[in-house]
């Protein structure tokens, strides 16, 4: 525990980095972050009504209000998609924070790969739920045999959410520190 308290910033740093990386991956998986075939520098805002942000283009996927293109990188600005990505990324980051805290505190043997497995299994489904235009990404990249269940793939996102929450609670029970602590003289 002394070790964990001596290096409190490492788990937080790892958790934060994981959150950021996951948001990028998630936006790429749902096609809100993509590449263009021609470089340009463009910002499009205000061309569609604000209420469009609430329109679903898929289950748990929402319309964008704007677009930023920097070179060949294009980011669609969908407030709800960003919020969902941030929620998932935040939960994954919290899991990584918990795992890193336990490991740096010498408690790794108390969670025999369970924490890593929980975080990984929770993070993947949402990335696979993303869809392109009229077919889920998994189908477009040629994963065979799942066309018949294409309509069920979007439900992988709430599955991700559930697994990440359960996994974080499990880590907490293993002794991982809470994300938010009351003021402690040791950390002051």
């Amino acid at each position: 525990m002394e070790k964990a308290e001596a290096r409190p910033r490492l788990p937080a740093l790892l958790g934060g980095l994981t959150t950021g990386l996951y948001v990028i991956l998630y936006l790429y998986a749902i096609d809100d972050l993509s590449l263009a075939d021609r470089a340009d520098f463009t910002v499009i805002l205000g061309s569609v009504p604000l209420e469009r942000a609430l329109e679903a283009r898929g289950r748990f996927l929402f319309e964008a209000l704007g677009l930023i293109q920097l070179g060949t990188v294009v980011l669609l600005l969908s407030p709800l998609n960003l919020a969902i990505g941030a929620l998932l990324g935040g939960l994954l980051g919290a899991n990584v924070h918990g795992i890193a805290s336990l490991q740096s505190g010498g408690r790794a043997c108390a969670m025999p790969r369970g924490g890593q497995a929980g975080a990984l299994s929770g993070s993947l489904p949402a990335l696979l739920a993303g869809g392109a235009c009229c077919a889920p990404t998994l189908l477009l990249i040629g994963v065979p045999g799942i066309a018949a269940v294409a309509g069920l793939l979007p439900w992988l996102l709430p599955l991700s959410l559930l697994l990440l929450i359960v996994s974080r609670f499990w880590l907490r029970r293993q002794g991982a520190p809470p994300l938010l602590r009351r003021h402690s003289p040791n950390l002051a």
Binding site: D31, S34, L35, A36, D37, R38, D40, I44, S47, V48, R52, E63, A64, L65, G66, L67, Q69, V74, L76, L77, A132, C133, L140
Partner: peptide, 21 residues
């Protein structure tokens, strides 16, 4: 100006020029 925001400089399925995906 379709009323929606999309990356119209990308085809999610591949390309016709040259043929791919």
């Amino acid at each position: 100006n379709t009323g929606y925001v999309r990356n119209y400089r990308r085809d999610p399925y591949g390309s016709y020029t040259p043929l791919s995906g």
